[in-house]
């Protein structure tokens, strides 16, 4: 494995091996000394061309806990602002000895293109509306911990499916691992292409969609990606697709709640649900760190990295 670009193109075995490794590295977060020598002498760069707090910090800490050095490149204040292309930026970093690059970009497919141009491992930290593979992995790890398995689960993803790279990574991973997926959201935010997929059910009706589900992934309503007219109003969105104490009754009694964050409390999910014992959002964040340590170790550890 040279890069981590998508979950769509990973086998179930690849995904499961990454989940096992993540599970085993998770305890590092609890250690009194969170500094392992594993990636000592390696340097990684965070190339974030879109705002991010959690994901960038999570990658940075994951690299640091494994003793890699980390630099952060953001477009403002860098040569990118002066018109340098991404390829030149990347090539300069490679010339300086960077061993891996973590990239987030608003354009789908940029990490793939970068991976073809440079020899170092590229990790996709979210590209446009395409994929966010480490988020997908941490969601799978959380589900597996909560339910003991993924095979045979019924998992709902609620919200703005159209703009969501999280939904896409989740869908590919869930299908690969044998789960059934229910996509629920406003018709204007539901891509038609998902209706053709096996093991995927599409509905606009929250009550119908939540019947019998083991877990609910609540997506953030991405206000910055709403070009206008997709949803009538935040109030109506909440009334029809908001996950509340009321709508939660329709799911299985032991269904868990997940959310990739950041949350709009009172819009797509109510505060009391988010803070309840059924919420696994804290564990998702924790698992994110484990997954990112695992991915860095997987891509940078070992001589014959096939």
């Amino acid at each position: 494995m040279k890069d981590l670009l998508t979950l769509e193109h990973l086998s179930a075995q690849d995904i499961e091996e990454l989940l096992d490794l993540s599970e085993n590295l998770g305890e590092i977060v609890d250690r009194p000394i969170k500094k392992l020598p594993t990636l000592r002498g390696k340097a990684v760069v965070n190339l974030f061309f879109e705002p991010s707090t959690r994901t960038r910090n999570s990658f940075e800490l994951a690299a640091k806990y494994l003793s890699a050095d980390v630099i952060n490149v953001q477009p403002s204040g860098s040569s990118v602002e002066k018109g340098e292309t991404l390829w030149d930026t990347a090539d300069n970093l490679v010339q300086m000895g960077i061993d891996a690059a973590i990239i987030r970009h608003k354009v789908s497919g940029v990490p793939q293109q970068l991976a073809q141009m440079v020899s170092i491992p590229i990790i996709n930290a979210g590209d446009g509306m395409h994929e966010h593979p480490t988020q997908g992995l941490l969601d799978m790890l959380t589900l597996r911990q909560a339910k003991g398995r993924i095979d045979g689960l019924r998992v709902a993803i609620v919200g703005d499916i159209l703009h969501s790279r999280v939904a896409r990574s989740d869908i590919w991973a869930l299908r690969a691992l044998g789960a059934d997926v229910v996509l629920i959201g406003p018709p204007s935010l539901m891509p038609d292409s998902f209706r053709q997929l096996s093991h995927v059910t599409v509905t606009t009706d929250l009550k119908e969609g939540l019947q019998g589900v083991d877990a609910i992934q609540v997506l953030r309503l991405q206000k910055e990606r709403q070009t206008g007219g997709d949803i009538p109003s935040l109030w109506e969105y909440r009334a029809r697709w908001g996950v509340t104490a009321h709508s939660l009754q329709w799911a299985k009694p032991d269904a868990i709640i997940m959310h990739p964050g950041p949350q709009n409390r009172g819009v797509e999910i109510d505060s009391d649900i988010l803070d309840s014992s059924r919420s696994w959002v804290g564990r998702q964040v924790r698992n994110g760190l484990a997954v990112r340590m695992a991915v860095l170790f997987r891509l940078l550890g070992g001589a014959h990295n096939e």
Partner: peptide
């Protein structure tokens, strides 16, 4: 480990 193929960690 840089001389060995990647192997998982328990």
């Amino acid at each position: 480990w840089e001389q060995r193929p990647f192997s998982n960690v328990d």
